[in-house]
């Protein structure tokens, strides 16, 4: 396969698979139910946590909690990839995908892209829409870098979520538990509610490998003007690519295991 083909072939499958993701999104939401249902729920969650800072009476604490929880909304949604990856098995297409020449991972990369896209919009609405209500104001020069970093957070978290989805590939019944447990752990250790310095060293080391820790550090730097945002952003890109490669490898491994054990879906 030529270099061009090795890029265009996966890109094509990801694009067609993303059309499937879009169809799912359209089936689940109208713009009204997304805005007043999903977005409303997420803004209520951010408000809940930001209000603690307000009650404490510290503007810094309020800013910390609002930014952390606003960014967390795109993480929650991106981690839905763990759940939607199991849908192929449920609709009976997994057997057919396993018997097709293209790798499974190409399909799964595109199959859940609705989540990071929707998650990005949710986070931006929380940061720029809800922020000023809690005294978190944004200068014009901050909007573009923060937007780019939120996109990076959603994208790299999606890559991490794909890896977890691949690990949980054969645990169909536990998909919701795994998804929820993973993002709650991230919420605890990645600097969303409390600084990473709160945790023991070994937890901090683990947290550094999760892209959210890096992107959140970068967003807080831009938001508070406290340090360089480029270094953690570059780390996040590297980690995202690493998790994506690991996810592709894990999907191959799980497919091989499934072929051996007979768990690659029943006849469609």
């Amino acid at each position: 396969m030529s270099l061009t083909a090795s890029i265009t072939a996966p890109a094509r499958i990801i694009r067609y698979s993303a059309a499937n993701a879009l169809a799912d999104m359209r089936h689940m939401y109208t713009w009204k139910t997304w805005t007043f249902g999903w977005l409303g729920r997420m803004l209520a969650q951010v408000t809940f946590f930001a209000f603690f800072g307000h009650v404490i009476g510290s503007a810094d604490q309020t800013r910390y909690l609002l930014v952390g929880n606003a960014v967390m909304t795109c993480v929650i949604e991106s981690m839905m990839v763990i759940v939607s990856t199991t849908w192929e098995r449920r609709v009976g297409t997994l057997t057919l995908l396993s018997a097709a020449p293209a790798p499974l991972s190409w399909v799964f990369i595109g199959r859940s892209l609705q989540w990071p896209v929707s998650g990005t919009l949710t986070s931006l609405a929380a940061l720029f829409g809800l922020g000023p209500a809690f005294g978190v104001h944004w200068r014009a020069g901050q909007i573009l870098p923060v937007t780019a970093l939120v996109v990076l957070t959603a994208a790299t978290t999606y890559c991490f979520g794909l890896f977890v989805a691949a690990v949980a590939f054969n645990a169909d019944g536990a998909r919701n538990i795994i998804s929820n447990a993973t993002y709650l752990l991230m919420m605890a250790v990645c600097g969303v509610q409390v600084p990473t310095s709160y945790w023991p060293d070994w937890v901090r080391v683990v947290a550094q490998a999760i892209p959210l820790t890096q992107t959140l550090k970068a967003i807080r730097s831009v938001s508070g003007g406290t340090g360089p945002a480029l270094v953690p952003a570059c780390w996040a890109v590297l980690l995202g690519v690493g998790w994506l490669v690991a996810a592709s490898w894990m999907f191959q491994l799980m497919a091989r295991r499934g072929r051996r054990t007979g768990s690659m879906g029943t006849g469609a």
């Binding site: 072939a9 094509r12 499958i13 067609y16 698979s17 059309a19 499937n20 169809a23 799912d24 359209r26 089936h27 609709v91 009976g92 297409t93 057997t95 057919l96 995908l97 097709a100 020449p101 293209a102 399909v107 469609a268």
Partner: peptide
């Protein structure tokens, strides 16, 4: 089972055609 019910017939076949290169 085995088809993407929320896609139309053409989208289904295009997806699978891409899977076959």
């Amino acid at each position: 089972r085995g088809l993407y019910g929320r896609l139309n017939a053409r989208q289904n076949l295009r997806f699978w055609a891409a899977m076959y290169g």
